[in-house]
Design a protein around this nucleic acid. Structure first.
Lengths: 234, 234
DNA sequence: AAAACCCTGTAAGCCCCCTTACAGCTTCTT
DNA sequence: AAGAAGCTGTAAGGGGGCTTACAGGGTTTT
């Protein structure tokens, strides 16, 4: 927990999309309420049942957000990236966490008591608008995932996931699109609501067709168009 | 489309939970922006792809909200009741409807342009807070449904649905709880993400165990505790 | 009153995908 | 450097639930 060098007094909020181009006095007011915490890869940030007291701003790193059922099965809702916020349900009346949040890499988060943030929002309606947009996006994600689970088979869900990951983490290369994120088959399975074994099988079927490959332990999408087609996205 | 007798100038908003105990001048301002429409049982209110221009307040009756996939399969998200709002995603940046809204009974809705409502919210922060709570509840519903689909089997999902319907529409009787809502097996199937045939079978298995029955074409829950148990809610 | 339509009941067949099992790897821990 | 732990690959087996098919009953339409 050493302290970082601070290029500006608001360094911990500067990387947060939600606070882009906020007036300095607003930033200052917000900054006084914020605390910074770091977690190592694999650490748990919060668990289902924990009190929903804080909202988290992800300053650096990636965080997995998943549902957990009593038998320990997971369903990963999303992976949060630098600049995004999570745990925002605390603002909407959630009392206990329903998700588990885990550091996929070493991360640094800023936390603010949801009370403080709602108070702050009441005085700064532009921020309120931004937050409601953020929550709208969250709803859209949930809707997508639900539709996906209800209507699509495992191969389709996997193809959709890969296309999505390509959009979010893809680095264009000559052999295709390289996914700059480290995910195990277990992670992929949790993301599509399937099992590790079935996911391995399905990935290898795609590989056999030359649609995907591997590079430095990460996935390489050789033929995004074909994947799009399998994903029923065109 | 004859006009109703209007007991108060705001009659069309009086039944809406969101507007309870709003100041008269607020009501008045809102009222000028609102239009009332009626639909008959079975009519479609909006379809996927329609522009998301309006927010709907359900003044009277019940409305089905479902996803539709290209093959025509449905997944019913929820049934809106008198006093609730729907189509609220229009306020959160949705451009086109993703849901289909259908009148389950004869209904009467008030609509307001989402633009007008957001403008109005900017000036009346208490309403903004209420709406964000409403949206929080919507998110919670979505999360529940998603978890349900991912983790639970058809019998469990059906039992959960019945318990939920009991809470929402149940009328206590000597033989159990009577569901005061008319739902076909097709509806139930759409609500749990299954098929009509499987749902019929599962219902009849519950009936064979004496857990449910029928009365006047509606379901009667004979043993809610047992259902709760099947639903893994205790 | 007849016809059309939808709802309910039942059942055979099949297939997707989960479960279980194991073995060789790679990556972290000590 | 060795051991532990987790990741990947593969395969047999089984089952939950979807598909398909059909028939009788109820309800709405004309």
């Amino acid at each position: 927990m050493t302290k970082l060098k601070t290029p500006s007094p608001f360094w911990c909020l500067n990387n947060v999309n939600l606070f882009e181009r906020l007036a300095p006095n607003q930033m200052d007011a917000l900054h006084r309420r914020v605390k910074t915490i770091r977690y190592q890869r694999g650490e748990t940030i919060f668990l289902p049942g924990d009190p929903s007291d804080f909202v988290y701003f992800l300053h650096h790193g990636r965080v997995k957000l998943s549902y957990l059922d009593e038998s320990g099965k997971r369903f990963m809702l999303t992976i949060c990236k630098q600049g995004e916020l999570f745990g925002e349900m605390a603002m909407l009346g959630e009392r206990q966490r329903r998700l588990i949040a885990e550091a996929l890499e070493d991360v640094e988060v800023c936390i603010i008591a949801s009370r403080d943030l709602t108070d702050f929002m009441a005085e700064h309606s532009d921020l309120a608008l931004r937050i409601s947009k953020t929550i709208g996006a969250r709803v859209a994600t949930l809707e997508n995932r639900l539709e996906d689970m209800v209507f699509n088979s495992v191969p389709t869900r996997l193809a959709r996931l890969l296309v999505r990951l390509g959009d979010e983490y893809g680095v264009p290369m000559e052999q295709g699109v390289w996914l700059d994120i480290r995910l195990t088959h277990r992670d992929l399975a949790d993301l599509i609501g399937s099992t590790r074994e079935t996911t391995t099988l399905t990935i290898n079927q795609l590989a056999a067709q030359g649609l995907v490959g591997k590079l430095q332990g990460r996935l390489l999408l050789h033929d995004v168009n074909q994947l799009r087609h399998l994903a029923k996205l065109d």
